[in-house]
Design a protein around this nucleic acid. Structure first.
Lengths: 195, 195
DNA sequence: CTACAAATGTCGCTTTAGCAACAAGAGTAG
DNA sequence: CTACTCTTGTTGCTAAAGCGACATTTGTAG
């Protein structure tokens, strides 16, 4: 039962960090299934009841961790202040490929199934990022918001699906080749949307 | 105005650590005089008012740090469960010499005067340690407590004074030689007290 | 010297964290 | 199956940390 109200309270930030850091340490050492909330709070030196003020359960903190990392990584590579030109799109595609690859490599097979539950959240975040860029482009024109949301959904799902397939198939073609294939598919649709 | 009640509360321990760590970092970088309470709390990410719940002022946290370090160092070298035989005494003398030397070496000249204010506290702690050992030796005989306190005072002051002088004079004789000199002075007195 | 800026301690009030105890559920050994 | 233990969420209550404001002091530039 999350009960935290003010995300900017220094105590809240500190406690969240303690819990996340503990969780990350444990995740490297033990099987996710065998990690209990008690383990996390004991390692973090935080009361167990406090954990439940921040997260619903251990799946919740896993999700938080995955999203948090995704956003950290993408924000270092893609500036949301930019416009969605071809260069930006290529950067996003390259980033998603890299992300998918590193995640799949860092997963012991036990985590693969669990992380697949998180994929949906990551896709939504990717969609968010693209939507944010698109919306800013048409800040004045509110009528286009709906269209932006729709096209962002399709762009992000295309990119993520392509990157996933590419990774699943063993990454036999180069990322550049994949990027071209994706670009050829999505750019015409985007251009039509822009007119 | 220290207002902390429960020293074992995990939050108290955590906050104290944050403050101490921040203070130690700042002490290495800046002149003690130029360190403000605000600096410490900002670095530690702790509220300024909270600082005053733990320490009176920056001199107080300095004192705490010095005592804390002294106790950490001595507890690694001298087990208070031991009895005060000649070996233990020699170990104590060696430790005090080492302590005095390292402190004086790690001090920029600005700190020397400030740390001299701390010397008295360190001496008292040394006295405490010796008294604890002595008292345990006569646990059954409460009448000897007063005598133990007195002799502990004299033993500790003798050792500390000798070590200080040895250090002040440039450490020209070996610690072993100094130890012999000190032992020759204090052991007879201790023996008389024991009978 | 003066005036302005910054640091110091302190205060009441709000918010978050710790704690102990609870019922409910999962897993395990006999 | 049963009894046992451990984990899980949850709940009041207590205690510590955060916050903004305040009067003072300190220090420093003009």
């Amino acid at each position: 039962m999350k009960t935290i109200i003010n995300e900017n309270d220094p105590r809240v930030i500190r406690t969240r960090h303690l819990l996340l850091d503990a969780f990350i340490v444990l995740v490297r050492k033990k099987d996710f299934t065998s990690i209990s909330v008690k383990d996390i709070t004991e390692y973090a030196q935080v009361n167990r009841a406090t954990f439940y003020a921040h997260f619903q359960d251990k799946y919740d903190i896993l999700e938080y961790m995955v999203i948090d990392r995704f956003m950290n990584l993408i924000s270092k590579r893609i500036n949301v202040e930019v416009i969605l030109n071809e260069e930006t799109l290529r950067n996003i595609i390259l980033f998603v490929c890299e992300y998918v690859e590193t995640v799949s490599k860092s997963c012991k097979r036990n985590y693969a199934t669990i992380l697949s539950l998180m994929e949906e959240k990551v896709k939504l975040k990717l969609c968010d990022v693209i939507y944010t860029i698109l919306k800013k482009e048409n800040a004045a024109n509110h009528k286009k918001d709906e269209k932006s949301a729709l096209i962002a959904t399709m762009i992000s799902s295309s990119i993520y699906a392509a990157a996933s397939k590419w990774n699943r198939d063993g990454r036999v073609i180069t990322v550049e080749a994949l990027t071209e294939g994706v670009m050829n598919f999505i750019v015409p649709g985007i251009n039509i949307y822009r007119n």
